[in-house]
């Protein structure tokens, strides 16, 4: 489940079927049913990105479509963190 910190964002990723996601005003709460960990998605933009990953074979392409250029490194880091915590699974 947990991958290396430098997870390969050029692959296809999607929200794990082991998590529940609930939107809140600040973004979303994600609960991982296996690890019993709570994870915060700290902006609605990140929630939107995570939800749209499903439609891409390459997560970097999803970031390019959804996120403005200057902010892309930040969102790459955010996705890697979510991969590390098992919120995103490889497809």
């Amino acid at each position: 489940m947990t991958l290396l910190a430098g997870a390969d964002l050029s692959r296809a990723w999607a929200l794990s079927d082991r998590v529940s996601l609930r939107e809140e005003s600040f973004g979303a709460l994600v609960y991982h049913h296996d690890t019993r960990r709570l994870v915060f998605l700290k902006s609605p933009t990140l929630v939107d990105l995570v939800r749209r990953l499903d439609g891409y074979d390459n997560a970097l392409a999803a970031i390019d479509d959804v996120i403005e250029e200057a902010a892309r490194p930040r969102y790459q880091r955010a996705l890697r963190d979510l991969i590390d915590s098992g919120v995103l699974d490889g497809r």
Partner: peptide, 13 residues
Amino acid sequence: LRTRFERGLGAPI
């Protein structure tokens, strides 16, 4: 984020 929590969520965690 903590301040957002103190203002309450749409449902409990």
